[in-house]
Design a protein around this nucleic acid. Structure first.
Lengths: 115, 115
DNA sequence: GAGATACGCAACCTTAAAGTTGCATATTAT
DNA sequence: ATAATATGCAACTTTAAGGTTGCGTATCTC
């Protein structure tokens, strides 16, 4: 079989559950929000704004990293995190798919009732 | 202050984390997918397609119900579940917001580099 | 080189998620 | 009325999430 597919197709092929799970935590959403300005931040910087310990923040960043939502680059003694938006496309593609199926169902139902 | 707001504004006002958390499980995503054809199903029906016990499915349905993703109506001795797409809009609005912020950041960065 | 800074790793605690089993109760069908 | 069906409730187990603390190591700064 061919392995060629568009990014949209690729997005649909990836299991979205782990991505949603990573997004399903307030602390992690907050970290993402702060990183979504495109700037890069160290763990200590990110932990400074929260009431959590650095280790807790590190764990959350690890969860985000495992699904590709952030990326880290070592820079001297600090590791700098950046937002990676690709998994968001996977999540959006999934939601769009469910919503589309839902809308189709409503249309068919309406057509059925009116015929 | 006014409490008037559009559905889009309302969507942004709701904490999306619990919705994402509810979506962050394969079994629940599968339940949602099967319900997103708009048809109504009993717990036993939904549990029949899985390798889980009825009770496990009941718990998952409860999680989905708690964030408004499904709705149940008692009908005789069975309770029938229906998909409710509104929370999906909340999730989509949130993802769109983050993605937009991200795109803005890239634009500003580009402008900064080129100036 | 010495001290401060930034991090990684590992152990540990607490709580909740996911799932099971057993039993009670309400409905439907015969 | 009885038997079968569909569900609800509660107790219990297992495992993982979220968080902390302590300590070791690499890296800047002076």
């Amino acid at each position: 079989m061919s392995t060629l597919m568009s990014t949209a197709e690729a997005a649909r092929a990836i299991d979205p559950a782990p991505i949603f799970a990573a997004l399903g935590d307030r602390t992690r959403l907050s970290l993402l929000m702060r990183l979504s300005d495109g700037r890069t931040r160290s763990i200590t910087m990110l932990a400074g704004d929260t009431d959590l310990t650095r280790q807790a923040v590190t764990k959350h960043l690890r969860v985000l990293q495992d699904v590709g939502l952030v990326e880290s680059v070592r820079h001297g003694r600090e590791s700098r995190f950046t937002c990676r938006p690709e998994p968001l496309d996977v999540a959006r593609a999934y939601l769009d798919g469910v919503a589309a199926q839902w809308d189709d169902a409503l249309l068919r139902l309406k057509a059925f009732v009116e015929e």
